[in-house]
Amino acid sequence: MRGLSLALFLRDRLLFIVMALLIVLLSVSMLLLERERYPGLVELGTVFYFMVLALFFLGIWLAVDYVRQRAYFKQLFDAIQRSEELQATTIINATVTQEQKLVSRMLEEQNRAYLNELGKYRRQQELHNHFVLQWVHHMKTPVSVVDLLAQEALQKQASSQEEQRLLALSLQEETDRMMRGLEMMLYTARLDKFEIDLHVKQTALHELARNVVNAHKKLCIRHSIFPRIDGEAWVETDEKWMTFVLNQFVSNAIKYSKSKASAKKIVFALEAFENGGGKLTVSDEGIGIAAHELPRIFDPFFTGENGRTTGESTGMGLYLAKQVCNRLGHSLSVSSVLGESTALTVTFNPRGIHLLGSHEGGSDAR
Results as ranks from 00 to 15, higher is better:
S5D: 00
A7F: 09
L10T: 00
A20Q: 09
I23L: 14
I23R: 07
V24N: 09
L26I: 04
L26Q: 04
S27H: 14
S27W: 12
M30F: 06
R35I: 00
R35T: 05
E36T: 01
P39C: 02
P39N: 06
P39R: 12
E43L: 10
E43T: 02
G45E: 09
V47F: 05
Y49R: 09
F50T: 00
F50D: 03
M51C: 06
V52K: 15
L55C: 09
I60G: 00
W61D: 02
A63L: 13
V64Y: 13
Y66M: 01
R68E: 07
R70A: 05
D78W: 07
I80T: 10
S83T: 07
S83Q: 15
L86T: 04
Q87E: 13
A88T: 06
N93Y: 08
A94K: 10
T95F: 03
Q98A: 02
V103W: 15
M106D: 10
M106K: 12
E109C: 05
N111I: 06
Y114E: 14
N116H: 13
K120W: 12
Y121P: 01
R122G: 08
V132H: 15
V132F: 12
V132L: 15
L133W: 12
T141E: 09
V145K: 08
V145I: 06
V146S: 04
L149G: 05
A150F: 07
E152D: 09
A158W: 12
S159P: 07
S160I: 05
L166T: 01
L169Y: 11
E173C: 01
E174R: 03
E174C: 00
T175P: 02
T175D: 06
D176A: 00
R177D: 09
R177F: 05
M179Q: 14
G181S: 08
G181M: 10
G181R: 09
E183T: 10
T188V: 02
A189F: 08
R190K: 15
K193Q: 05
I196E: 14
D197F: 12
D197K: 11
L198R: 15
H199Y: 12
T203A: 01
A204T: 00
L208R: 12
L208N: 11
R210S: 15
V213G: 09
I221S: 11
R222V: 00
W234H: 13
V235P: 09
E236V: 06
V245P: 04
V245N: 02
Q248N: 14
S251L: 13
A253T: 11
A253L: 04
I254N: 09
Y256E: 03
K258F: 09
K264T: 03
K264N: 11
K264S: 10
E271S: 09
G276Y: 08
G278A: 07
K279H: 03
S283H: 07
G286N: 06
I289R: 03
A291P: 13
L294D: 10
R296Q: 14
I297Q: 07
I297S: 04
T303A: 11
N306P: 00
N306H: 04
T310S: 03
G311Q: 06
L318N: 01
L318V: 00
Y319E: 08
A321E: 12
V324D: 10
G329K: 01
H330S: 07
V334G: 13
S336M: 04
E340S: 03
S341L: 07
L344C: 01
T345P: 04
I353Q: 14
G357I: 02
G361T: 04
